[in-house]
């Protein structure tokens, strides 16, 4: 088991290194950062000087090694556009993204699970069919359009929810800011959370439905029925409980992708999070921010993956045996 953990840790490290390499390499192609720093009328000699001072003239490997060394110390350099350390820019925006991601994950679970259970139990009812069709709309329209339609309806027409930003935030500790403690902060969370969570909600609803249907066919459920347990007890005591394990796992794994896909939602709602910062950086060819963001996201993924793998290994002796055999 210890060897297994070690090996997985080592693999994760390799993953991080390759992400770093890709992240670093890809942005060599996207655009020339020097252009973003200078204005049109900056003299050529000065442009060359900036290029040199940024180390952009060094060989690729030298630049990469320097990048890794700095990244290991959480030194992601200075943003070309803001002239501020990238880590502080990302840190300042991380709470906004994490809160949004958590709220939309919560939304997708709270709405998705009951809808999934219902559609599985009452497969033929018209309401179940409505649920299924409606949930599909969540994945039938692009996120940006859904967001703008929600803004149009709830902000412009009805005037009940804000169209942009986080509302009033409260500072907790030295760097965390939260919108969960003020009315305007909570209101501001509603539309972006729904926009971002709609896709996951559909996913979870369908997953719960499929898993429930499978489980309901399983032998032990049949036994439970045969033993004369009440339908409700069978459904919620046995079936749902067994359904939730894979659902929670998937939801956990999805958390990372929610954060990644927050890019579009944050752009539409001017949500001051990391995704929005990232997209603006792509448009402004701000390589340090882009690279650091990728590293951060992949770190998150790798951590979640690692945790899930270790949990599985701990829970499922068969998998452990298989993994250990090699």
């Amino acid at each position: 088991m210890f060897a297994f953990i070690l090996r997985r840790l080592f693999q994760s490290l390799i993953v991080m290194l390759s992400v770093a390499l890709i992240a670093f390499a890809m942005f060599r192609f996207v655009g020339d950062p020097v252009n973003q720093i200078v204005s049109i009328d900056t003299p050529q000699a000065q442009v060359a000087e900036i290029r040199r001072s940024l180390g952009l003239d060094d060989p690729f490997l030298v630049q990469f090694a320097r990048y890794i060394w700095n990244a290991a110390r959480l030194e992601f350099g200075v943003s070309y556009q803001f002239r501020l350390p990238v880590i502080s820019l990302l840190g300042e925006r991380a709470p906004a993204t994490l809160e949004l991601a958590l709220m939309s994950a919560l939304f997708s679970l709270v709405v998705g699970i009951p809808m999934g259970v219902y559609t599985a139990l009452k497969r033929e009812s018209w309401l179940a069919k409505v649920f299924q069709a409606v949930s599909l709309i969540g994945i039938s329209l692009p996120t940006f359009l859904i967001g703008i339609l929600l803004i149009y309806l709830f902000s412009v027409t009805l005037g009940v929810l804000p169209s942009f930003g986080r509302g009033e935030v409260v500072r907790l500790g030295s760097w965390w800011t939260t919108g969960l403690l003020t009315v305007s902060g909570l209101k501001a969370l509603v539309l972006p959370s729904i926009t971002l969570g709609l896709f996951q909600m559909t996913l979870i609803m369908r997953l719960v439905r499929a898993e429930m249907l499978e489980v309901l066919r399983a032998d032990y459920i049949k036994f439970a029925r045969a033993r004369g347990l009440k339908t409700r007890a069978v459904h919620f005591g046995h079936a749902l409980k067994n359904t939730l394990v894979p659902v929670i796992t998937i939801a956990g794994l999805q958390l990372g992708s929610i954060i990644a896909f927050a890019i579009i939602t944050e752009t539409v709602f001017q949500w001051p999070g990391m995704g929005q910062l990232f997209l603006r950086s792509v448009q402004n060819v701000d390589i340090p921010i882009m690279a650091a963001y990728l590293m951060l996201i992949s770190f998150l993924f790798v951590t979640i993956n690692l945790a899930v793998d270790l949990l599985y290994a701990a829970v499922d002796p068969r998998l452990r045996a298989t993994v250990g055999a090699h």
């Binding site: 390799i14 993953v15 996207v30 990372g256 890019i263 990728l294 992949s298």
Partner: peptide, 22 residues
């Protein structure tokens, strides 16, 4: 599976930017 992990880190948007750049 580790390649898959790396892959998951990059949403389609990033991949499109990467390939577009290349």
């Amino acid at each position: 599976m580790r390649i898959a992990d790396v892959q998951l880190t990059f949403p389609a948007i990033l991949i499109a930017l990467l390939i577009d750049g290349v």
